[in-house]
């Protein structure tokens, strides 16, 4: 898993190819209610013919049989559907697939390494028993990956103290910071304390690795 220092901007650059207005990605007439949509999901390129109403979440679950991302509320109120879009965490239930044409998506199925080595966060979640029913877990994991990247890139949170807000730089993740940054992911089993420990552990490991990398030529 790359540890980005700066979360890339949401969405790729406009897909070039200036053309006559208004148009759809493949130039179909604007009355069409379906489009060809290209998505790269967990490193695999997909070309799909999708009804415009289909969300990214339903694309993953119903069209690509990637059911790791969960539907908890379908309205951006629970976080179970969280995936990484262009490296940033997002609620996939509120994203229309057609609007993501050309985007890179990572789901929980894509967190482990190519040899099935678990992501440090996945290992930490198992070590700390950071889930019970498991339904919010994929969203928690993707959210935690995104949150650690955001912290590394210096994104503040509601829990960030005034002094740290004024001076940008990588954010130190106290338990309070982790709690706030992961509050977009509800867990009804109440695994929060274990989730915080898991993310704090994995975050510290990642930070140590990053620090080690800096001094190594």
């Amino acid at each position: 898993m790359p540890h980005a220092t700066d979360p890339p901007a949401h969405g790729p650059v406009p897909d070039g190819a200036p053309g006559p207005a208004p148009r759809t990605p493949d130039g179909a007439p604007a009355t069409a209610v379906r489009s060809r949509v290209a998505l790269r999901v967990n490193g695999v390129h997909h070309e799909l013919d999708l009804d415009h109403r289909v969300t990214l979440l339903d694309t993953l679950r119903e069209h690509l049989d990637l059911t790791g991302a969960k539907k908890g509320c379908d309205h951006g109120q629970c976080g179970a559907c969280t995936v990484l879009v262009e490296g940033r965490r997002a609620n996939s239930c509120l994203l229309l697939a057609v609007a993501l044409h050309g985007c890179e998506i990572t789901t929980v199925e894509g967190l482990a390494g190519p040899d099935d080595t678990l992501h440090p966060l996945q290992r930490a979640f198992m070590e700390h028993d950071a889930f019970q029913c498991g339904y919010c877990t994929p969203g928690q994991l993707c959210s935690a990956v995104g949150a650690l990247r955001e912290a590394a890139a210096g994104h503040p949170s509601h829990a960030t103290a005034a002094a740290a807000l004024a001076v940008p730089g990588p954010a130190a993740l106290s338990a309070e910071e982790v709690r706030e940054r992961l509050s977009g992911n509800l867990c009804r089993c109440g695994a929060y304390p274990a989730i915080v420990r898991a993310v704090t552990d994995a975050g510290a490991d990642a930070a140590a690795t990053a620090a080690g990398a800096e001094v190594t030529p």
Binding site: G68, V108, E109, M126, G134
Partner: peptide, 12 residues
């Protein structure tokens, strides 16, 4: 079932 749950393999 921990591994299935953290990899998204657990099906509901």
């Amino acid at each position: 079932e921990g591994r299935e749950k953290v990899t998204g393999a657990a099906r509901y």
